[in-house]
């Protein structure tokens, strides 16, 4: 039972941290979750600004070219860009 409590406590701490940070945040760069990115390249194809490349199997966004159109966010089949 203790091991479940330990894990649930960690999960609850994560949720609390997320809620504490929730809100309309500002961003100057999109994030790519490299654990979830499968390197399929759909973000590269849909980006109208040539701002995304696949490097070492992960999507990499060029911060100088990204215009925050969010097409890659909408297109990504894994939801790995946000």
């Amino acid at each position: 039972m203790m091991r479940y409590a330990r894990y649930l406590a960690a999960l609850a701490a994560g949720i609390l941290l997320f809620l504490a940070c929730e809100g309309p945040l500002n961003t100057t760069q999109l994030m790519v979750n490299t654990d979830d990115c499968i390197g399929c390249g759909e973000c590269v194809e849909v980006c109208p600004y040539n701002a995304v490349e696949i490097i070492n199997g992960d999507a990499v966004i060029d911060p100088s070219l990204c215009h925050f159109c969010y097409r890659c966010v909408e297109q990504c089949p894994e939801g790995a860009i946000y």
Partner: peptide, 17 residues
């Protein structure tokens, strides 16, 4: 979590769970 340091401004840029 990501925090941006933009000149003198510090702001939370992203959180994900």
């Amino acid at each position: 979590s990501a925090v941006d340091f933009d000149g003198g401004t510090v702001r939370s840029a992203c959180t994900a769970l």
